[in-house]
């Protein structure tokens, strides 16, 4: 049994749903998401904030959920890849990733999607250089990155309501 100072009661909105839990101080956000809430879309790999597969948005900003204490999500809004689609309707980023073949094994994809969403929420019309710089902390071993940069650019155009053009 952990001492009281090691446990805290937190309330966070996770993909729009209010969640209240008593958590250990050492519990990371990704552990809460995957093991308690069953939201296994968020992956874990390097656990050192380097690879980006565990990226989720907290109050709209991208964080490495492997190194983010669940307690720090108290009172905040958390969005994971499960919260990206609108019911059966994929988010434009997801559609663009599929169409541009911006994934192969798919393990890094949730992280790239959330990282890209953070960019487009702040910069609706990013250049390919801005996209590449923003994503330089996410690692993909399948695609060679070019299809991902194209997909994000394509999603940005659609989100701005522009017609597709190549």
């Amino acid at each position: 049994m952990l001492a009281e100072a090691h446990l805290q009661r937190i309330t966070a909105r996770i993909n729009g749903v209010e969640v209240t839990r008593t958590v250990a101080a050492r519990l990371t956000l990704v552990e809460l998401l995957r093991e308690d809430l069953g939201l296994t879309g968020t992956k874990v790999s390097c656990e050192l904030q380097v690879c980006g597969v565990c990226t989720v948005l907290v109050d709209g900003s991208p964080v490495s959920s492997c190194t983010y204490l669940a307690i720090d999500a108290d009172g905040r809004d958390v969005q994971t890849v499960e919260g990206l689609a609108d019911g059966e309707q994929l988010h434009p980023l997801q559609t663009a990733f599929v169409e541009s073949m911006a994934l192969q094994c798919g393990f890094c994809t949730p992280g790239f999607l959330m990282m890209s969403k953070a960019l487009l929420d702040r910069v609706p019309d990013p250049s390919p250089e801005q996209i590449a710089k923003h994503l330089d902390g996410n690692i993909c071993r399948c695609t060679g990155y070019e299809p991902i940069i194209r997909a994000v650019g394509c999603a940005a155009r659609r989100l701005r309501g522009e017609a597709d053009h190549e």
Binding site: Q49, V50, G52, T55, S61, P62, V63, S64, T67, Y68, M115, A118, L119, H134, D136, G137, N138
Partner: peptide
């Protein structure tokens, strides 16, 4: 500095 997540945290 670092990457976009490190900069946020």
């Amino acid at each position: 500095v670092g990457n976009a997540r490190v900069r946020v945290q």
